[in-house]
Design a protein around this nucleic acid. Structure first.
Length: 231
DNA sequence: TTGTGTTTTACGACCTCC
DNA sequence: GGAGGTCGTAAAACACAA
């Protein structure tokens, strides 16, 4: 499409100087189709730093803004096609694309800048989604492991209770059958400390009693947590 | 129709590289 | 120092719900 045609036919256009932006709805300032006065809006642009605008700068800015318009679908399609091939433009390539599309090289450069920014944002969003998915998966795995730990802890507790009951039953049996004939006595929660038995002594003549590291052991049993526990 | 949110075009400021 | 990049933002254009 011809640049002149575009510039003169696409409305509204804007004229922008260093310090302000004037938006004109009709190029010649005449009234719009509904009979209302041409709308002119002035908006102050934010000023950054200590830039001092010259008249030349203003003129160039006005010239650029004079051409401000939305690109046509065909132009956007061609620019997208170029962007697929290369995200950054060589100077010559920029001029070529601008010539082919009837655009200012500056417009092509700006379009590529903005397109790169959009592409970068999209990449970031994709990366975020990927990381979030991974994180959610990790959290789920952690929950499963924690519930497994709880289940195993309960099983361990039940097993310990079972062991305690069995050992208590055994101790009661031993004490009831041997209470009058032996000086050996065993009580739960009371570690034996002063036994006189020598190794290989027995309880009731059939349960061997061993001594190791100043601890007394029944066969396959160990004094543990105040009780004799069978292993 | 209008208010509101999103996208697009363009810019200024600043940074990096040659 | 200039060319060309990113970043943040303005403002028009657009989409859409109420």
């Amino acid at each position: 499409m011809d640049q002149t045609v575009l510039s003169s036919q696409v409305y509204p256009y804007t004229i922008q100087t260093q310090s302000e932006c004037i938006i004109v709805n009709q190029m010649d300032g005449s009234s719009s189709g509904d009979g209302s006065k041409p709308v002119k809006r002035r908006r102050k642009r934010r000023s950054k730093g200590s830039s001092s605008a010259t008249n030349e700068d203003d003129v160039r800015a006005m010239e650029r803004m004079f051409r401000k318009r939305k690109l046509t679908d065909e132009q956007v399609i061609m620019l997208e096609y170029s962007f697929e091939n290369e995200h950054k433009l060589e100077s010559g390539r920029k001029e070529k694309i601008a010539g082919e599309l009837g655009l200012d090289p500056r417009q092509v450069a700006v379009w590529f800048q903005n397109r790169r920014a959009r592409w970068k944002n999209k990449k970031l969003e994709e990366e975020y989604a990927k990381l979030k998915s991974q994180h959610d998966s990790d959290v789920l795995g952690q929950c499963q492991l924690e519930s497994q730990v709880i289940k195993l802890t309960e099983q361990l507790s039940e097993a310990q209770n079972e062991i305690r009951k069995l050992s208590e039953r055994l101790v009661v049996q031993e004490t009831s059958t041997n209470s009058s004939s032996s000086s050996f006595s065993v009580e739960a929660n009371d570690a034996p400390t002063d036994f006189e038995f020598s190794p290989m002594d027995t309880i009731n003549d059939n349960i061997p009693l061993y001594m190791l590291d100043n601890n007394y052991y029944l066969q396959n049993m160990e004094y543990w947590d105040g009780l004799y526990v069978q292993f």
